[in-house]
Nucleic acid binder design. Structure first.
Lengths: 143, 143
DNA sequence: TATAACATTAACGTTAACGTTAGATTTAGT
DNA sequence: ACTAAATCTAACGTTAACGTTAATGTTATA
């Protein structure tokens, strides 16, 4: 399979090489493969993962910590097999699952709040736009 | 009319006094009235303005610079009388208005992008929530 | 009227999220 | 095989958005 070096990834994603290494450093992306001599070699999936992170950061305005938190949560759900041997394990798992469920609900509610506020702002901007357009048209008529 | 001192405003908004002064310092909120001896005295409207800023910052994840940019834009539209004396003035005004219109459009498009991405993330979270709920229910049945 | 609980400015400290530079290897092109 | 270009780690620099502290003055209340 094809591997990309960090400069290619940088150009593809628009991030700097420093930023990519930094994201790896803080655990936001998984450390990629290395060549024998230590050069980072990224797969296509690595790049996709990185692009997701960028979208979440840029578009959603999440902090890197929030992103890390979310990614950890997702992995916890996806990787856990939820097997157990005895009653104690079962109880622990249940607690954990309910905890995760609670966090998820909060995040979803937060997103809904954000979207609501965003819609309000959008409406406000559109009203402003309308006003500007009206003024321009009036000038056109008079001009 | 009633005036509030900075500590009241801090308690009302949840910001620290330092933050409120800082927002004034960088021009994000207008400097409030002062008592003869220099104590800041805020009106109800000042507090409302501040709350709007908080919402935009917290909920929309805008940087203070972006907020400043937006507020400046809004003021430019609202305060401008769009009067002119001669053809040169008229041309300048028109340029300015078209510039503002262009910026507004970009911001609106950006908001739409953000909302779209946000919806995708919300769906993703809801799927995860569903999975967790399913697992919990299966345990309930077995348990 | 004293004193505790506020207010002010000024300045230095802190954390996140990188940028920049340095010095040493590695890889790629001729 | 040599040189230019790219990679690595390590470490210090920078900016935004405040926190903290200090030194000083003001307001409220017992």
């Amino acid at each position: 399979m094809q591997r990309f070096k960090i400069d290619d990834v940088a150009k593809e994603t628009g991030l700097t090489k420093r930023t990519i290494r930094y994201y790896e450093e803080i655990g936001l992306i998984k450390p990629p493969e290395r060549s024998e001599k230590g050069t980072r070699l990224y797969t296509k999936e690595d790049v996709e993962q990185l692009k997701k992170v960028i979208a979440a950061r840029e578009v959603l305005g999440f902090s890197l910590q929030e992103l890390h938190h979310f990614l950890t949560l997702k992995k916890a759900i996806e990787s856990h097999h939820f097997e157990y041997r005895n009653a104690v394990d079962q109880d622990e798992k249940k607690q954990e699952l309910q905890n995760i469920a609670s966090i998820l609900r909060k995040q979803i509610d937060m997103l809904e709040q954000k979207m609501k506020k965003m819609l309000e702002l959008k409406n406000e901007l559109e009203q402003l736009e309308q006003r500007v357009q009206t003024i321009l048209q009036e000038e056109e008529r008079r001009g």
